[in-house]
Amino acid sequence: MTFKVRTSVLDNSDGSAELTTSDVKLIVSITGPIEPKPRQELPNVASLEIVVRPAVGLSTTREKVLEDKLRGMLQAVIVRHLYPRQLIQIIVQIQATPLSKHQGGAYSNHRDEVEYSNVELNAAINGCYFALVDAGIALYSSFASTCISITKPHEINDNQEYIIQPTLDQLNNSSSHHIICFSIEDKKATKLLLIDSLGEFTEEELFTVISKGVEQTELLHENYQRKYISDKIHNDYIWKS
């Protein structure tokens, strides 16, 4: 599994992160807290402006849905009452998706290929975490997200397979795929923030996926997020020693 993060990649924004996973590459930029337009202003909390830009072409209904899900999730983790009448702008620029990689960069308008926009959602959530930390926006807790697909057995004797971070081919052969996002406190996944499951699955499968999600998000936190934060603090306070 590839999971590469670079932060502060953009000079003119308050925080940014570039996330590269095996399928998806994206940059998240955070600007804020800044002065909002009058119509965006909320009297007691910060308003969020979330923009998702696709890898190729202009944004469509697909990006609107990603923005909507991202907003629902982020408004629960950002301590919004710390920034009343302010705006936090979050821009996610997707650079590569499983589909665009699959087709050698050529984007097809034919919609012949089945799209898995949730894979991008998964990466966007993880990217937002690093960018928000980089921008110094107050969060209630850490959060991490993972994508798991279930492949149905072809033979009766086979077990069904749970695949973490599935590739496009694996998704294509899967019977369902799930995005699980947990909040993380004291290295432990505590609260469910978001589940987005599509396909066909049973309740039992769902709860297996959730428990695998706990493992995966904790791993992600342990291996990448913690390390990144301690490095960041070390670098930020380098003058102190």
């Binding site: 202009l58 944004s59 469509t60 209904t61 308008n109 034919h110 919609r111 012949d112």
Partner: peptide, 12 residues
Amino acid sequence: MDRRRLLGPLNT
């Protein structure tokens, strides 16, 4: 191409 509506493949 309409980006706000789902109107089917372009070659329909």
